[in-house]
Design a protein around this nucleic acid. Structure first.
Lengths: 240, 240
DNA sequence: TCTGATTTGTTCGTATGTATG
DNA sequence: ACATACATACGAACAAATCAG
């Protein structure tokens, strides 16, 4: 591949197309680091700015991800996290042929905060079961979630979730055959240091945060959850 | 939460982040008064000027509102942008008692890109009407959207949208009495320089991006739209 | 814990070609 | 022919994040 400076096409566009074809041709593997900007600049005999312009366009399009001080990486395929009336983490990912898994990081009883109380229609300070879990797909951590269940109805959730590695299976064992998602709020924010550590993501990439309320067949609120995703790996798909 | 004076981060930035996380964590309820500047100064062991600097930055970003002689209040500015089967920008905001408006920034005919063609079920390169609009609430710009409509069915949309200042009203005048949202994809990313300029937001705050497909009563795809929001102002609320 | 090397991110300035009126 | 505006490209320097020793 050669860069020409006479043709109508600008230099940075030619470089963009070359790198893009090399990514699509799997010359650089997903998740792996690309050559540095300086190396590209040497290879194409251009200024680093010109390379940066090409890379930045590819980043906008989602083919690349750059991390300050670390390098430029080929973006792995994004996961569509479906949100619908009936949303189950494991079914969600199984449909996309990805191996799902849920791991319990922490569990405790605590009094409901104002936010949790309002979501579960409890009094502030009422006892709830708190679980902190991670969701994985193909062994990669894609979400960290806080779950709140009203006590005493859901005493013992922690043990069940740890055993079954699934919220929906644990709920079934607690006698909740069917549940649906009443409301989901979605927002974006930058990760705190702890968010970044838990999600194994860089601090300069945005997070998607979903706050969801699940209700049982009778309409009683059984779970409030706050899930955090790295937006580089996960998009949310809303389907009626 | 502790303030450190050694790290690279200035003291007022640390305070800003702590207060911001407390606001986002709903420790201070929207509309309610925050602790006084003097109380913050005591708590963080800093001068009141330092606290004021943190607060003033949060006010710039719209999270706070200060009133001389009364105190500092959490701004209830976050707009819930509802996404449901039947989503209308104007009804959406009218429900929240906010004055909605839509402004046409640009309009043209163009051939469908791969993405647009797939969304509208057209051949790549098929002619579409492209509109760039802004959505406003209470005079503040909250979204910038690109809309794509298939030609020739929606020839003349640009004029109608400019006149009616509403997509749904314009569609009605084109004979589309009823339409529903078939799918919505939601993602977060950092704004480009152009995004930031159009949304009047800083470069270091994340954006929420929604990609939506609308279909008419017969199920034909009539619109593909990509909307960008500043996540500081807007959250997305998914309701079945 | 500190230091230096590496890598990306940002901001200057300069020069050139092209399209427009 | 000239002025202006804009995008492209190069160069230098420094800031910020990361990482290995």
């Amino acid at each position: 591949m050669e860069i020409t400076r006479e043709a109508g096409l600008t230099v940075w566009r030619q470089i963009q197309q070359i790198i893009e074809s090399e990514i699509r041709g799997k010359l650089y593997q997903p998740g792996k680091r690309l050559p540095t900007e300086a190396e590209f600049a040497r290879r194409f005999q251009v200024n680093r700015h010109t390379v940066r312009r090409a890379l930045s366009r590819l980043e906008e399009r989602g083919l690349l991800r750059t991390e300050q001080g670390r390098g430029t990486f080929v973006q792995e395929a994004v996961i569509d996290y479906k949100v619908a009336r009936r949303t189950r983490f494991s079914e969600n990912l199984a449909q996309q042929h990805r191996a799902p898994n849920r791991t319990l990081l922490a569990a405790s009883d605590m009094p409901a905060s104002t936010e949790v109380a309002r979501a579960l229609r409890l009094r502030r300070g009422a006892p709830v079961v708190y679980l902190l879990t991670t969701g994985e797909a193909d062994g990669r951590r894609i979400s960290v979630s806080a779950h709140y269940f009203p006590k005493p109805r859901f005493d013992g959730m922690a043990v069940l979730v740890a055993e079954t590695r699934s919220i929906s299976t644990a709920l079934k064992k607690m006698g909740v055959e069917e549940f649906t998602r009443a409301q989901t709020r979605i927002l974006a924010r930058m990760p705190t240091a702890e968010d970044a550590r838990q999600l194994e993501m860089p601090r300069n990439r945005p997070m998607l945060v979903t706050e969801g309320i699940n209700v049982d067949a009778q309409g009683a609120r059984i779970e409030f959850s706050i899930s955090r995703f790295c937006s580089d790996w996960v998009q949310i798909l809303v389907e009626p």
